[in-house]
């Protein structure tokens, strides 16, 4: 591990959104193994990953262990992060989801072939900013959904629940769940257009 270097002034990158801030921190981890940047990412995302795993059915001790593991993976895979294709939260979500499949389900996850240009290309600035703004907007749109729709979306992402398992647990008919999720997704799409 590199020594903790004094923080350099970041190159003239304006932080137009909170998302741009997280992206800069991941870049700092990637380019100069910046432990302070990592500590900031850890403070924000590690508890969220832990919560995500607990809601997916892990006990607190396992959730803690997996959250540490996910954050360590972030450090090592920082060069794979592409701010043009995903927000930092989305990228961390996919790492946590894959670890959950490994650890909780003890199963493999086939991944799509990577795009021909691979993760190493230089991201386009305009596309990156557009994606950052969309991520902010999506977060707000999700929070603004009616409670009964938002909860079902969240539970679908906590992952150990199929739609029929949500039905068994909530007592809602499967058709209602499907149409609420569909409604919620339509609303999110409208907000994004």
């Amino acid at each position: 591990m590199a020594q903790n270097e004094p923080p350099k002034a970041p190159p003239v990158k304006e932080e137009t959104t909170p998302e741009a801030h997280w992206v800069n921190l991941v870049q700092a981890v990637k380019t100069r193994k910046d432990q302070r940047a990592f500590a900031s990412l850890f403070a924000h995302f590690a508890p969220r990953v832990k919560a995500f795993l607990m809601k997916s059915g892990a006990d607190p001790a396992l959730a803690e262990e997996v959250a540490q593991d996910v954050m360590a993976t972030l450090w090592h895979k920082a060069h794979m992060f592409d701010p043009e294709r995903a927000s930092v939260a989305t990228w961390i979500f996919t790492i946590a989801r894959n670890r959950r499949i490994d650890v909780l389900r003890k199963s493999r996850r086939p991944e799509p072939e990577d795009l021909p240009w691979g993760p190493e290309h230089e991201p386009d600035q305009a596309d990156t900013i557009a994606l950052q703004q969309e991520s902010e907007q999506l977060g707000k749109a999700l929070a603004a959904l009616p409670e009964n729709q938002r909860v079902l979306i969240e539970r679908a992402y906590f992952g150990e629940f199929s739609h029929s398992e949500i039905a068994a647990e909530t007592g809602l008919p499967l058709g209602t769940i499907k149409s609420r999720i569909r409604l919620a997704l339509e609303r999110l799409r409208q907000e994004m257009n």
């Binding site: 995302f45 969220r48 990953v49 995500f52 995903a86 927000s87 939260a89 989305t90 990228w91 961390i92 979500f93 996919t94 946590a96 989801r97 969309e134 991520s135 999506l138 977060g139 999700l142 979306i153 969240e154 992402y157 999110l188």
Partner: peptide, 8 residues
């Protein structure tokens, strides 16, 4: 996946 990020 972006919705997953927002949920997280």
């Amino acid at each position: 996946e972006a919705v997953g990020g927002a949920v997280l």
